[in-house]
Write a protein that binds this DNA or RNA. Structure first.
Lengths: 239, 239
DNA sequence: CAGTGGTCTAGACCACGTT
DNA sequence: ACGTGGTCTAGACCACTGG
């Protein structure tokens, strides 16, 4: 475990273990090496191995039993209900036509609120896009997205009529360390209400999503949906 | 920080900090003492303080900026729809007091809409309960629930001040075959707005949940939350 | 520059389950 | 008795921020 960049050691330990699990070299339910064995094998301290394993427990990839050992967790029971991929696919899956209108793609300076969500200083440079999505000519989502420039340097040159911003960002194939999703209800601003052709007194359903690489927030988006035309749903079989 | 039971030190550090946040002695956005200050103050090692603070970040209670400091996070009640079993536990987990007011527990005849959601004939007999839940005296949820009588014959006799309706229904230990959850935004009716002490023009965040046994819908609930005091959220590590 | 958080180490003691 | 994970310490070096 000596190949070092700026990546923390415990991250590398996690990656190492995940690689072995994902490649099936360590099967479901199988016992992992003990902390002390990993210490010897990877030449790191036990605290570092311990942290890596604790985070893998939190991520539901391994289970630990005190006095017994560490085991590969059962594969995903249920995918996250709010695992919204990209709006275009979703619309096509319903057999409808997707189209969109790009209202802005530009470099901006972070407002106080935006800066806070990125843990950056106000005034920092960010990329910003605002796109309205239509399902068979009915406005269904306004997508506001902020992107850290070093995460996607060519963001401003992308043609978002060819692919959605989400598709483009996923295509970069960077390893996200964390995803946060929040669902809220709120009254729309006048501009949003107009974009979505909403009735007066109709609320919005909001999905706020942030993604991290390492310790840094790399994207932050706010998806506005008209309450009368959109909802989040899931249906599944409980275990 | 010497009062020890079998409780880990980092847990006590977390509790200590949460107590000060919840009692408003440390306000939202306010800066916490640095790690070194906490080390001196609580007589524990820095690794222990660090672990406590890292877990508070994961729990969304504080935010940290490297080179700057640690700050009390904005408080917004938040939960993950899939994980919610009962509202009382959720509130207790946040260290707050749960109370409720039972507004109705009765047998009713299904309206056209309710009948549809159960796939029954309009006018069928169903049990119905309406309960307002409070988090530290702040109204946070109106729970409307319809129950198929043969699923829970004694539903009308349960004391919902003793246990949540959800707790009671789970306690029946029937094997659910399916669960459906839908999230919507909507303006509240006047009655709901009054129960939740909501401002005019404030929308509701709705969670609709239906459960099945075999091929039959056995419960259908509608949970109303004030948009300004409640949101659904999740933060996780993608693997 | 001094202060902050982020990480890492090499020890240590403990409670627990298995042998 | 032994190995396991769970916790804790007292140091240390680093990158970053602020004045």
């Amino acid at each position: 475990m000596t190949a070092k960049q700026n990546i923390p050691l415990y991250q590398m330990v996690k990656q190492h273990i995940l690689t072995l699990i994902d490649s099936k070299q360590w099967q479901e339910g199988e016992r992992l090496p003990s902390e002390n064995e990993l210490v010897a094998e990877l030449s790191v301290s036990r605290m570092t191995v311990n942290r890596a394993l604790r985070e893998l427990v939190a991520a539901n990839r391994v289970e630990r039993i005190s006095g017994v050992g560490t085991f590969v967790a059962q594969a995903k029971v249920q995918s996250h209900p709010l695992e919204i991929q990209n709006i275009a696919e979703e619309i096509h899956a319903r057999g409808h036509q997707h189209s969109c209108k790009v209202e802005a793609v530009e470099q901006i300076r972070a407002s106080a609120e935006t800066a806070l969500s990125f843990d950056l200083a106000p005034g920092s440079r960010l990329f910003y896009s605002q796109i309205v999505h239509y399902e068979s000519d009915m406005a269904i989502q306004v997508e506001e997205r902020y992107v850290l420039p070093q995460f996607a340097p060519d963001y401003l040159q992308v043609d978002f009529n060819q692919q959605t911003s989400n598709q483009y960002l996923m295509g970069l194939n960077k390893q996200l360390s964390q995803v946060e999703q929040v669902v809220q209800a709120a009254m729309p601003s006048k501009a949003i209400a107009k974009d979505l052709q909403m009735d007066a007194n109709e609320p919005c359903l909001l999905l706020l999503r942030r993604t991290w690489v390492e310790q840094k927030v790399v994207t932050s988006s706010k998806l506005h949906h008209p309450a009368s035309r959109y909802q989040f749903g899931s249906r599944y079989q409980p275990s």
